[in-house]
Structures are given as structure tokens and as C-alpha cells.
Nucleic acid binder design. Structure first.
Lengths: 192, 192
DNA sequence: CCGTTTTATTGACAAAAGTCAATGGTTTTT
DNA sequence: AAAAACCATTGACTTTTGTCAATAAAACGG
């Protein structure tokens, strides 16, 4: 159940068996059915969620239309970090796109681990740093690339997600309507 | 010269005088004239730069047009983090919008500090975490808000920057042409 | 100072993207 | 197996944004 979590952890920071056991004692497994919410806008985000299996999305809703800001598949962590850290109400929703298995870390667990387990802090720092870099690249893409480029960028970066997720959600992730993405794809195939 | 740096540091993580001295020994001051580059696309980004005084921008250029991805004024840190961490060539340029005074941390200094000074690691983690949260909010705004909302958002979030920086750079930061921003502003004032 | 450069605005027009509605093909549910 | 829900595509049309060009004001540098 915790295999992937510790595999990913060790890729970033090596761990002894004892350390692994100590950290494991802070983790909670959770299963989520397709379409179930992990978090709803307005609630306080109580946990970080690591995806052992399945796929989730994080999105905001603004007068009726959804804007996906992140996908998470196996090996990824998802949360409304701002809400998690500050205790303010979440501005995002998170729900499952497939039946999923998660590993949850509550805020108190997170804080105790930061205090008591230096390797957890290091892991956390490395994790958030690469998330930041990825997000910065994504923002650059969204500001400077054409729709076609953004789409190809996405499919080559995350071929896995591109296959598992309906196209209109990718459109939403890219900040487009489904129609516009459909037409962009058509243009791409007729020319290529 | 290092006042603001340690003030910001202590806001996040308290420091003893000795710790401050130890960290200080890893820092290098640098002055930059207006329009001077701190980093050019293609070069390796050698440092993190904390802004003690002045203002800088980070931007990418793609066939002729510039896209500003970040501003940094007093108290902010700026860098091409990906290039800094991996040693790959930078995809961004950084230059000074005003005469500026910076505090630089080289990659080796950064790594030694991470190893030897737990509080530096904590500071770093907290810093990058809030940078991540801010970036996520910005991305959400850029995907889900109208131009008017994005602009008001920016000016209320960073009134200081909005005043110091020419309008066409704000347009670039928001992913717009200067003309479009100018017209959006006009619409806002006539209605309000 | 005075000339040059930068900056913001505006107009006319073109291109890009969104909206609405319809269709046909899937998948899901019962 | 049939009905319902979901999904991708397409067409006609509207709205939004970009492009190019001109102008005037402001800032800057010698």
C-alpha cells in the first residue's frame, strides 16, 4: 500500500528502515471512488494526498465553468496547499477521475514530521521545489506559446495523462474551450 | 547591506547572532545598473539573487517578443531555479529595471548551507512553498479571470510594482499586448 | 536645455477564440 | 439490451484580442 510513496521518497532522500517505519506511522490510507470529492471549495483542506493509484483533478469553478489547475496520477501529490498551510477555506475542488488509492498526511502529522524528521523536511523541500519549477514552466508556456504548441507540449510531457483523461478536461487545463482544442487538433493532423 | 535579507529571514525562521554570522559568510553583494543583465538566456544560472534594493524582471523571448514571468523588488528572491539547480542553460533573462543592490548565493554556497545549517533549509523550504502558492494562484487567475479582473488583481496585490513599472511590462506579465491592456483600463475607468 | 527614446493611447482592420446549436458516436447505467 | 449521459466534432455567428500605423506626451541622456 505504501510502496510507491516510499519509492518516490527514497528517490529524493534515502531512508533507513527505522526512519521509514517512523514516517509510516504518520500516514493514513484512503480510497476514493470515481467522482468522489477529496476536497470541496470552501472547506478547509486537511491533508496532503499522495496518489498510490488512480487519477484526480484539482479545479476551480467560476460562474458555472470549471478550470482545471492540476491533474495528479500515480506518484504525484495533490492538495490546496494554501488552505492546508493557513487553515483558510479552500478555493479549489479536488475529485477523483478514476477509483483511486491515496495516502494522506494531516496538517499535524506534517508539522510533527517537519520537527522530528529532518529527512522529511528535505523530502518536502525537494518536492515543492520541483513542483515550483514545473509550475513556472507551465506558466511560461501558457503565456508565450500558441495553442498547438501548448497542446503538444502537454501530450509529450504527460502522455499518460493525455490518454487517461477526456479531451475537454485537457482543454480546461490549457485554458481553452473544448471546441477550440478540437479545432486546433484538427489543424495539426491535416497539416502533419 | 544585508539588513533586509536577514529581516526577511528572521520573519520566517528566528536566528541567533552566530547563525547569522555563519550564513552571512556565504553571501556576496552585487550592484546592478539599470538595464544590466543578471542572467541571459543560454547561460547557466549561477546564483540565487535576493533584492535588497531596486527592481528586476525575469522574462523569456520568443521570436522577438518578450514575456515577463516575474518581477522582483525589495525583499524578493529571483533566479532561473531550474538552471540554478540542474546546471542546464537558462531559458529566461533577468535584468534590472532600476539600479539595484543584490545579495547573491552561489550554488555551492546554497548546498553547503543546506547541509550545515538546518535553519537555512527551513528558510528555503518556507520561501519556496510560499512562492509555489503564489504562483498557483497566479496561474488560476490567468486561466479563469477576465483581463479586467487580472489587472485589478495585480494592482491590488502589488500596488508598489504597478507604480514602478511601465504599463506595457505589466501587460506582458499578464500575457497581453500593451494595446489590449490600455483599452481594458479605459473601459474600467469609464464605467467606474 | 534640446533632441532622442520610451511610453501610452487611439483607430482601422485582421485573426483568433468563444458561443450556441446540432449531430453522431461512445460509454455508462440500470 | 435499451435508455441515458457523456463526449468529440462541426458549422454559423459573435466577441475578443492582436496587428499595424499614427500621434502625442513624458522621461532620459548628453
Amino acid at each position: 500500500m505504501y510502496d510507491l510513496f516510499f519509492q518516490k521518497f527514497r528517490e529524493k532522500v534515502p531512508l533507513s528502515v527505522e526512519e521509514e517505519q517512523q514516517i509510516k506511522s504518520y500516514l493514513t490510507p484512503k480510497k476514493l471512488r470515481k467522482r468522489q470529492y477529496l476536497l470541496q471549495e470552501g472547506d478547509i483542506c486537511k491533508t496532503l494526498a499522495f496518489v498510490e493509484k488512480g487519477a484526480l483533478r484539482e479545479y476551480s469553478v467560476d460562474n458555472g465553468s470549471e478550470h482545471i489547475i492540476q491533474f495528479a496520477v500515480e506518484g504525484w501529490t495533490i492538495s490546496d496547499l494554501f488552505s492546508f498551510l493557513t487553515g483558510e477555506p479552500a478555493i479549489y475542488n479536488i475529485d477523483a477521475l478514476e477509483d483511486s488509492e491515496l495516502i494522506l498526511i494531516t496538517r499535524t502529522a506534517h508539522e510533527e514530521l517537519l520537527q522530528t524528521q529532518p529527512k522529511y523536511e528535505t523530502y518536502n523541500r525537494v518536492l515543492i521545489t520541483s513542483a515550483y519549477v514545473a509550475l513556472q514552466r507551465r506558466l511560461t508556456a501558457s503565456i508565450s506559446l500558441s495553442i498547438e504548441e501548448r497542446y503538444t507540449n502537454f501530450t509529450t510531457m504527460y502522455p499518460d495523462i493525455a490518454q487517461r483523461v477526456p479531451q475537454h478536461m485537457i482543454a480546461s487545463y490549457l485554458g481553452l474551450t473544448p471546441e477550440t482544442l478540437s479545432r486546433a487538433r484538427k489543424k495539426m493532423t491535416t497539416r502533419k
